[in-house]
Design a protein around this nucleic acid. Structure first.
Length: 722
DNA sequence: TATAGATGTTTTTTT
DNA sequence: AACATCTATA
């Protein structure tokens, strides 16, 4: 058997990992050391050399993107393709198990999945029913609490109900679970927890999967949380070999319960684990790697790795101190244009990375102004848009009338005369009789005098609308079904009346939804045993869909540092390195959280292959508020010798030098930084707020104590620094 | 009950 | 700035 294609592309350390004898293995793999390659080649090795079948493999990661790539690479190495291969995300695979064994899991066959927003709304609903004070107990906090408990594998009844603080939260948790149960919905964390409980309670199922999954492979193991660890321990039985890959320096999901300690725990729990290290980096220049190593060395409690490269030193890291976020975007876009035009770089070779999604806007505007194609990953995703979720809520109701969360969302969207008063009556009736809102609606509609005439008619029309839609479209293709729903419910007409651009966008999104459903039904022949509507709704919740669909043009890539993990680009712009933004102000107090921010910076730096450019803005508008900022501590933590500061300050050239075209006379040159105090002959003292342009054409905005805010042509303003 | 306008809240990252 | 939620008014 010729396995040279599996082995030849590997270095000795990688080869050792891929060809390791049977048994457990922990691969500590630094950034850019080829860990995904090792994982996929290991999977192929097990089948082609060790006699396993694809059926014996279970391969897990965290993000849909990573899972898709892993699947594609394994399939290509094995020359197979099909859904028999269990490769996916923790949540996706759990979902698959729960669909297959819904009865054992105690779920209705058509259970639906709540995304974070759905979950928050439901928690809020429950809190109102329980009359919990939302000022004392913020909804988000309760939502976070519930998820944290689930991520740790704890149910409401496991909590201490005597303690007044956690007792109150446990009460909400319990009521929320009850609401989910009666509506037949599960949240993300529940997918994991329910799967674990199902396997614990059904040993015949557990035995079946343990016998099947002889080889369990896990990528990004440092991101596993408590319940995911339990999940793996269950599915990987005593006869199974577990092969895990991870990097403690890239652990950036602590906020959602990830435990780096799971790496160490694994070594203890799985005896005779072979520990391997991949320390040679094939991705970045020596400069970039040195910078990353120096930065991450400040963190404590590392498992310890020394990344090295045989590559070139490469160019220094560029640092640009922008005046504000517009200037930052201008710098980035001009630089990337120059690189694309002069060096023939593809636009898709360039990534702009930032800490928070809100930062994408300024870059989008700057790119759009210059007609440069770009693609934003993450942010508000397709299936999370309000109009899409409205349409999906109707579909959820068609699939399951008891889905009260879905019903509440659309019972009066678009408005059809069912106001708060009527809905409140519905809730009371539902609560009294212990039934869903839908059942309560049916009951009230059929009971004479149950509601005032006007409300009763409106509600009856709604009930008939839903039942009618169901009857008429039950056998239709998914896309036609959605088309009918959008039209008949009045969603389209409602938006059509509004002539605004935003409404137009929403209409286009609804059309896009119909197209997406059509494509989905065509491609998704694999899980034929699942009802197409249910499958589509699950797809919408689990893979919310990326920002913009299509346009596989050559695009500049914009994304958060979190979504950049696992990717690499020849050129990386790391933007917004300011104290308060990155590291985020919420994370600077606690050392542990600050270290996670530093790991995030490490992830960002190590995405770059050739060129790394770092920017920050001295002044940034956030939440409508202007704030001065100082450079991130992470900039100071880089070795100064590796950093080339482009120009931190704004320079103004005098009119004489500009007019004559001769050399600039130092005497007429001045430099100003934002926030600096200046003196003007007529307006008196003021503070520099903003700058625009450069050299003789530069304009400068000054807020004078007495004369107010003015824009001045800097060359003629004769400002003096004080 | 519907709507416009006021008021208050974001505080980050994702399945 | 953008959005959700509340309030006053028709």
């Amino acid at each position: 058997m010729d396995v040279s294609d599996l082995i030849d592309p590997l270095n000795p350390a990688q080869r050792e990992a891929v060809t390791a004898p049977q048994g457990h293995a922990l691969v500590l793999a630094g950034a850019g050391s080829g860990k995904t390659r090792v994982l996929t080649h290991r999977a192929a090795w097990l089948v082609r050399v060790e006699g396993a079948t694809p059926w014996n493999l279970l391969a897990v990661t965290f993000t849909n993107k990573a899972a898709a790539e892993m699947r594609a690479r394994i399939e290509s190495l094995l020359g197979i393709n099909g859904s028999g291969l269990w490769v996916g995300t923790f949540h996706g695979l759990s979902h698959r198990l729960l669909r297959l064994h819904w009865q054992e899991a105690g779920l209705p066959q058509g259970f639906q999945i709540l995304d974070s927003e759905d979950q928050r709304r439901l928690v809020k609903r429950v809190m109102r029913d329980l009359e919990v004070d939302e000022n004392r107990w913020p909804v988000r906090q309760l939502q976070g609490f519930i998820n944290a408990r689930k991520d740790a594998g704890e149910r409401a009844e496991d909590l201490d109900s005597a303690d007044p603080y956690s007792g109150e939260m446990a009460r909400v948790y319990a009521a929320y679970e009850q609401a989910c149960r009666s509506a037949g919905v599960v949240d993300f964390a529940e997918l994991m927890l329910r799967t674990v409980e199902m396997l614990q309670n059904h040993l015949e199922l557990l035995g079946h999967y343990r016998r099947r999954f002889r080889h369990v492979l896990v990528d990004e193991f440092q991101d596993t949380n408590g319940i995911q660890y339990e999940w793996l321990k269950l599915l990987a039985g005593p006869e199974s070999d577990v092969f895990i890959v991870g990097d403690d320096d890239q652990s950036i999901y602590g906020w959602r319960g990830a435990r780096v300690e799971n790496l160490e725990r694994f070594r203890k729990d799985y005896s005779h684990t072979r520990v391997l290290r991949l320390e040679q980096n094939y991705r970045s220049t020596r400069t970039i790697l040195d910078a990353a190593n120096t930065l991450i060395a400040r963190n404590s409690d590392r498992l310890g790795k020394k990344l090295w490269t045989e590559g070139e030193a490469g160019e220094p890291i560029a640092l640009y101190a922008a005046f504000n976020e517009q200037d930052e975007a201008r710098f980035v876009v001009e630089r990337l244009m120059a690189m694309v035009e002069e060096q023939g770089l593809a636009r898709s070779d360039v990534a702009i990375l930032y800490r928070s999604n809100a930062q994408s806007r300024t870059f989008e505007e700057a790119l759009m102004a210059r007609r440069i194609p770009y693609r934003v990953y993450g942010g508000l995703r397709f299936f999370e848009r309000a109009e899409i979720k409205d349409a999906l809520a109707y579909l959820r109701l068609l699939a399951n009338r008891d889905d009260s969360a879905a019903l509440e969302r659309i019972i009066n969207t678009p408005t059809r005369g069912i106001g708060n008063r009527t809905v409140e009556t519905l809730r009371l009736t539902a609560r009294d009789q212990g039934v869903s809102l839908w059942a309560a609606a049916r009951e009230l509609v059929s009971r004479p005098g149950g509601l005032p005439a006007r409300a009763g008619n409106a509600l009856r029309a709604f009930v008939e609308l839903i039942d009618g839609l169901d009857r008429e479209t039950a056998d239709a293709a998914l896309a036609d079904r959605i088309e009918t729903v959008i039209t008949r419910t009045g969603l389209r007409g409602h938006l059509g009346k509004d002539g605004s651009d935003r409404a137009q966008d929403k209409l286009e999104n609804l059309d896009e939804l119909i197209t997406a459903a059509g494509n989905f039904e065509q491609d998704n022949t694999a899980e034929a045993e699942m009802d197409p509507l249910t499958a589509f709704l699950a797809h919408a919740a689990l893979e919310a869909g990326e920002g913009q669909a299509g346009a596989w043009e050559d695009c500049v890539q914009l994304m958060t540092l979190h979504s950049a993990k696992g990717l690499e680009f020849p050129v990386v712009f790391l933007a917004g390195l300011e104290e308060g933004l990155f590291p985020h102000r919420m994370s600077v107090e606690e050392p542990g959280r600050l270290e996670e921010e530093r790991r995030l910076a490490y992830v960002g730096i190590t995405r770059a292959r050739q060129r790394l450019l770092i920017t920050y803005a001295e002044r940034r508008r956030l939440h409508g508020r202007d704030d001065f900022a100082i450079a991130s501590r992470f900039i100071r933590e880089l070795p100064p010798a590796l950093v080339d500061e482009v120009r931190a300050r704004f320079s103004v050239t005098g009119p004489d030098a500009a007019g004559s075209g001769l050399g600039e006379s130092p005497a007429t040159q001045a430099e100003f930084g934002l926030g600096e105090r200046v003196q003007h002959s007529r307006f008196g003292e003021g503070v520099v707020l903003d700058c625009e342009g450069n050299g003789p054409n530069a304009r400068i905005q000054v807020n004078f104590n007495d004369a107010g805010t003015k824009w001045l042509v800097a060359a003629y303003a004769n400002l003096e620094r004080i």
